[in-house]
Every structure is written in C-alpha cells, then in structure tokens.
Amino acid sequence: MAVADVRPAVTADVSEITRIQRVTWQAAYADLLPSEVLATLDTPDAEEAWHEALAQPAARVFVATEGEWTVGFCAAGPAPAEAVASAGGALPADADRVGLVSVLLVEPRWGRRGHAGRLLAAAGQALRGEGAERGVAWIPQSDAASESFYRKAGWEPDGTARTLDAGGRPFREVRFTGPLDIPLVERGGETGGTPFGAAPDAEPR
C-alpha cells in the first residue's frame, strides 16, 4: 500500500491545489453555486490566488499525499474577527486564540482513506503551536459530508450562520467549532493513521 502523508505546501503544489479545488467543488457544489462561479476555478486567477495565499506569513497550507499523488489540501490560520464574531458582531472572549480552517478538501476519488483527518490534525497542531485553543470552520448548510466529518472530529455547530452572495445566488453557511488536538490512531493497516479512532464515513468537501 502506498504511504499516506501530510506535509506543508510549497509553490510547486499550487497547480494541484487549484485542480483539486476545481474538481471537488464542481462535483460537490454544482447545485449550490452558479456555473459562472465554478468556472472561475478554471482560470489563471485561481492559481494566482493560491500563490498569494502561500506567500502570507500567517497562512498554513498543507497537502495530503498518497504515494506520488497529491490527493487533498487544507488551509488554516488565525481567525479574523469576522470569522468568530456572533451574528450581532460581538467577539467572544477568546477571539485572539481561535484558528480558522478556511478550506479542507479531498478529491472525491481519494475519499474514505483518512486523508481529511490527517490534514485537520496537521492544521490543528500548527494552530496550537501559534497559541490557538480552538478552531472554527464555515461549511455550506446543506453539506452533509463535511458536517459528518467535523462532528466525528468533535466539532459542533455553534448556532451562527451567514449568507454569502455567490454570483447573485444566496449561499448559506454554518459555523462549526471544536478542539485542535486531533488524535490519529493506526487502524486496518493504513499507513499514517486514521482520525478519531476509526475511518470517517465521509470526507469534507
């Protein structure tokens, strides 16, 4: 079996990160996002955005690999005020100790192999090393796969939702929050361990 691993992303990973985001979102969100929004993922601007993200000092971007293949990625960093504020705009007491998992994607054909858990564990370790005590992530309200994944990691919705403008179409998201110490346990011979003591039923998207 090919070795599965997670490592920090480098500039050479940008094309694969962009490709994974494109194919995953086009498969998962075709009914939620307008076609013109999804089309922007297949332009040079999409790669440029990831080059800029990697250049940000506070950004932590990781890629998941299996053998020679790049199969998923995760981007995280300190949570900005708007990511942790209440619906009324009030900040929690621990606002300066919260990390944001801004995106965590595994290409569908590589799902159910523990890659998402390894990515979340790596991001959590990095965020804890920089003083974060808990994490937050915003996921589409109707994204059952991502909801199941985060719940298995011990994260729960905190009751806050927001509506974004996605090319003229409302896009509803809910906020999950939870611990950053994600245990990895060897199971079933899978190299690198699987999260939460068992393989997750679904990967986030």
Rank of each mutant, 00 (worst) to 15 (best):
Q56K: 14
A64S: 06
E186W: 10
T40F: 07
T43I: 09
G159L: 10
A49D: 10
P8G: 04
L104N: 07
L32E: 12
G159F: 07
P157D: 01
I17Q: 02
W110V: 07
L33Y: 05
T194Y: 09
A161S: 15
A93G: 08
G159Y: 03
I20L: 09
A87V: 14
F149A: 04
P44L: 06
G189C: 06
V174T: 09
V103W: 08
G88V: 10
V23T: 08
D143E: 06
E82N: 12
R22F: 08
E173A: 09
T43R: 09
R118L: 10
G111Y: 04
P157M: 04
A4T: 12
E130S: 12
R60C: 12
P78F: 10
E52D: 14
E82C: 13
T160P: 11
W138L: 09
E190Q: 15
E156L: 15
G77W: 00
D96R: 11
A93Y: 06
G168K: 03
E186M: 14
E156R: 13
S142T: 15
I20Y: 00
P157T: 01
E133S: 07
F62C: 02
V10T: 13
G77D: 00
L127M: 09
V23E: 06
G111N: 07
A79L: 05
E48F: 11
S102Y: 07
R172M: 14
D31R: 13
R118S: 01
Y29Q: 01
L32M: 13
W25K: 01
V185F: 06
E173K: 06
E48T: 13
E68V: 12
R118P: 05
S146H: 01
S142C: 15
L38N: 05
E16K: 11
L180I: 03
L32I: 12
T43M: 08
G88A: 11
A161F: 13
A58M: 12
H115T: 00
S142P: 14
I182E: 03
G178V: 05
G178R: 00
V71N: 01
A55F: 08
Q26I: 10
A2K: 11
A53T: 12
L41M: 11
Y29T: 02
K152L: 15
A90G: 11
L105Y: 11
S15N: 12
A79T: 01
V37T: 03
L119K: 00
L91F: 06
A95S: 12
C74G: 09
P34A: 05
E66N: 07
L100D: 05
F171Y: 06
G117W: 00
T43L: 08
W110G: 02
G99V: 01
I182W: 02
G135A: 02
P170K: 05
R128C: 09
A126Q: 09
S146L: 08
A39H: 01
E133D: 09
A4R: 13
P78A: 13
A161L: 14
G154N: 01
L105A: 09
Q21A: 12
A145L: 11
